[in-house]
Amino acid sequence: MANKRLTILLECAIFASVAMVLSFIPFDIGSSFSVSLGMIAMYVIAIRRGFWAAGFSGLLWGLLHFITSKAYILTPTQAFLEYIVAFLFIAFAGVFAKQVRAALKEDHFSKALGYAWLTMLIGGVARYFWHYVAGVIFWGEYAFKGWSAQLFSVVMNGISCLATVIVCGIVVSIMMKTAPKLFLPKSK
């Protein structure tokens, strides 16, 4: 049992590190829109290990933003909301992990893919909800002329969320098709 927990913790750290590396690939348009490629690694660990592992990996990835100077910090509260809370909520990408893995084990690829897309969408929306909240509270002064903070935040974070889910979802779908064992940890 202790070996299994250690294995899961190590996997979480590895996937968080991979997510951080992927974050350095420039995929930003301006300061308000980006595709978060690190979510590829988060979706893999979420499907592979489930809710709690995804949350822990997300937390580690969020903390790595501070260490690598990739965090955009206005206030301590904003930093906490966007790099701790938002990244913890990546856990929701693991809500249907058992269903995805079960479908993969039974060679029901289309069923696995459906659950995977659903769980990736839930995880993406859960994370970006907190970026929306931070956008309204902290980033509203950067809104386009004539736009409210709410409209600016929902448009920018909504587009970023959808683009991230679509781009990362396509990559994860290809990975599920070509390397399904990546999503199926060995039982001990």
Rank of each mutant, 00 (worst) to 15 (best):
A149Y: 05
L63H: 01
V167W: 10
A54E: 11
H108D: 06
A149R: 00
G55C: 01
M175H: 05
V154P: 03
Q150L: 07
A112D: 11
G146R: 03
K105D: 08
G94K: 02
V125I: 15
P76Q: 13
L104T: 00
A103K: 08
Y128S: 09
S153K: 11
V171T: 06
I170R: 00
H131Q: 13
E82V: 02
L104P: 00
G123M: 01
F87D: 15
F152A: 09
A97E: 05
A102I: 11
W130E: 04
T77P: 04
I166Y: 03
A103N: 05
M156C: 04
V100D: 01
A102R: 10
L121G: 09
S57I: 06
M175N: 00
L63M: 05
F66V: 01
L118T: 13
K70E: 12
L74T: 13
A149H: 00
I174M: 10
F56L: 15
G158T: 07
F96P: 08
L81M: 08
T68S: 14
S57K: 00
Y72A: 07
K70S: 14
K70H: 06
Y115V: 02
V100K: 14
Y72M: 03
W117T: 02
G124L: 08
P76T: 14
V95S: 04
P76D: 14
F129G: 03
A103F: 09
G158M: 05
V85D: 09
S69Q: 12
S160G: 05
L88Q: 01
N157V: 02
A116P: 03
E141D: 10
Y142S: 12
L74R: 05
M156K: 02
Y115I: 12
K145C: 00
F129W: 11
G146P: 15
K105W: 01
A71R: 00
V172I: 00
I73K: 11
F89C: 15
V171Q: 01
E82Q: 09
V136Q: 11
V95T: 14
F87G: 02
Y142G: 08
A71H: 06
L63E: 12
D107P: 06
L74A: 15
F56V: 15
I90E: 03
V85G: 07
A112N: 04
L118Q: 13
F152E: 02
F129N: 13
I84M: 12
